[in-house]
Design a binder for these strands. Structure first.
Lengths: 361, 361
DNA sequence: TGAGCACGTGAATCCCTCC
DNA sequence: CGGAGGGATTCACGTGCTC
């Protein structure tokens, strides 16, 4: 079953995504990428430590009365999505902990078969300003087929090449959308939640073929359309906010097919493996209670459970405490502190090397 | 409400977790860590390319007929968990894409308030042997409180220290459980999904205090108990498989508790004794009439006898006045205001530190 | 011209005690 | 329980200006 010849592509449909999808024939698109409202349920204003106000998502389109009404909305658009998706097509949905569990459950309930959950690890997330939780540094994408036996597209080799000849993993490190890529209108961001093109690039490259039809029911400023055009895929966007539509059409008009040099920019920056001192404590390379000392054995510091050191009443990280004790502005704790090993003093940096050897590919 | 004194801890309850939890009083544990069955839906055996069989999860306890029965099971144990958890306690649940969306939805439906979803990024995952999907290189944990207004424990400063002075993020890079840590019975793995101690270490260090009671309803080989014992937390495990119980008890018996000195962790400023600015004036650390200024010397404020400041006709506390002058919603006067000392500007916070050193036990 | 610093900002469920 | 008030709290980048 393939009705993609029956529909017009590379165009934007104005209106509500459920109503617009309802007008399309069964089994007419190869992939659906959806970035639905997250239903963030934010409270009052939030201020950064220096006093500025965080420009939060407070749009009406993100507001739902109850979890139940969000679920009904999710089921309704997923049902239409499932109908217009070809039997061997796949769907991608992105979300955060606010909504992704509802979405994943609805996907399974509607009969989709989850192939992977993918973690977009943000290299530059917004911090947690009040120190109340872990920094929310990722978003989750779900990739699903129509059913267990569907023969979906997965360009395994392309992904492996993109990842320096290692299998592409389920966690992707990518920066958030900022700088020149971030679309503006009258000097302010055109859309509060614009996704980076690199994210769509990887999704489309992995799971579609050239000429495939990609539909995005929550088109926004058209990242999906722009990347589809650049990768030689056909696209259909659905959006109801006129402000976003204008920006999206202009953007896609200007998008150029990718050449080789542009492709390399999209590739993974292979980041330096960083190891925190605390990781050595957590993983048992160094036990809490161990005594560290400097080469001249002037100070004896006890390693504590959280990776801090204590010498008498002075406490701090390996770097801070080293600096404090020496009266220096800074100190490299990795080379300053030593532990007894094999009858002699060894810098703790050697433990870090050991850890890296054992745990990095 | 706190019934933790009414229960015996550091022990294993043999039996079904729902039945065993039902025997415990309301509000008696500070944290619940749960690693429920994953409902893996594996279609037959999985073989490596060279023909050897992958030892996947295929035990009886991991079979659920339908998503519906899994949901009923999840709701049933979550409901008991919620009842025995103290109002300010938190729950952690770990899972993969097979079950975590059901769990997250059930948590929200039962009234839990999600605080973070955490990604355990495996530094050495099992590759995808068939090359049909992305390498499944992570698992997801959900951290939730009893409700939106609960005052849960989060050792922010300890986590920041553990992560080399940067906020701990929602993505945790930790190796899988292997090597000597992986428990064996008759030469094969004692449990198919044994979690690494480092994972539990971070969870317990972040969200409990020494002496807190941690309950694990799917105890398995007792990773939660072993780490709780090491970190000076009390524990309760529930497990029905005699094979696992034997291994778990032996393992926890061998685990060594850390010294109290090693258990001490970095405290946030909020947890430290408070000093009123007026006290510094009363005790002569700062004389009335002293002129304070901000770093850019935009404002000159005079210290008054009652510990308030005045700039022209504006008066108020060090915090209020700083906020008023900057037009900011709030201001930390301790770091905003400076006084001349030794020829240069010093924040009045240093005076507070001096006072604390001289006057605290 | 280049280095360096100040400043702005991003899908955020973001304080706690006392009266 | 609501309001008031003390005072704790941020990381990675891009841009644009200064020296």
């Amino acid at each position: 079953m393939d009705n993609s010849a029956a529909i017009a592509t590379d165009r934007l449909l104005r209106g509500d995504c459920i109503a617009e999808m309802a007008k399309l024939p069964d089994a007419c698109v190869d992939m659906i990428f959806a970035d639905p409202p997250y239903n963030l349920q934010l409270g009052g204003d939030l201020f950064r430590p220096e006093g500025s106000r965080v420009d939060a998502v407070d749009n009406d389109w993100d507001k739902f009365d109850t979890l139940g009404s969000y679920d009904r909305f999710t089921k309704a658009w997923l049902r239409e999505a499932r109908r217009i998706l070809k039997p061997n097509g796949t769907i991608w949905v992105i979300g955060s902990y606010h909504n992704i569990f509802r979405v994943g459950t609805a996907l399974q309930d509607e009969g989709f078969w989850i192939l992977n959950d993918i973690i977009w690890r943000k290299s530059n997330p917004m911090p947690n300003f009040k120190g109340t939780r872990f920094t929310n540094a990722h978003e989750t994408l779900i990739w699903a087929s129509q059913g267990e036996d569907a023969r979906y597209t997965f360009n395994y080799k392309a992904m492996k090449t993109l990842n320096d000849e290692l299998q592409m993993r389920s966690d992707w490190v990518l920066p958030i959308c900022a700088g020149p890529e971030r679309l503006k209108r009258n000097g302010t961001k055109a859309h509060p939640t614009q996704k980076p093109e690199a994210l769509l690039y990887r999704v489309l490259l992995a799971c579609t073929k050239p000429g495939d039809v990609v539909l995005d029911p929550f088109f926004g400023t058209g990242t999906t359309g722009a990347v589809a055009k650049r990768l030689g895929r056909r696209w259909i966007g659905i959006e109801r906010e006129e402000d976003y539509i204008e920006v999206a059409l202009e953007r896609i008009e200007a998008a150029l097919p990718l050449d080789e040099s542009a492709l390399t920019i999209m590739q993974t920056a292979r980041q330096q493996p960083k190891v925190a001192f605390g990781t050595l404590v957590e993983t048992g390379y160094l036990d809490p209670g161990t005594v560290l000392t400097d080469t001249k054995r002037r100070w004896q510091a006890v390693v504590r459970a959280d990776g801090s050191l204590s010498v008498g009443t002075d406490t701090g990280s390996i770097h801070k405490l080293g600096a404090t004790l020496q009266g220096a502005p800074s100190c490299n704790g990795w080379t300053f502190w030593h532990h007894e090993a094999g009858g002699k003093l060894q810098p703790i940096d050697t433990l870090r090397q050991t850890y890296l050897l054992a745990n990095e590919p």
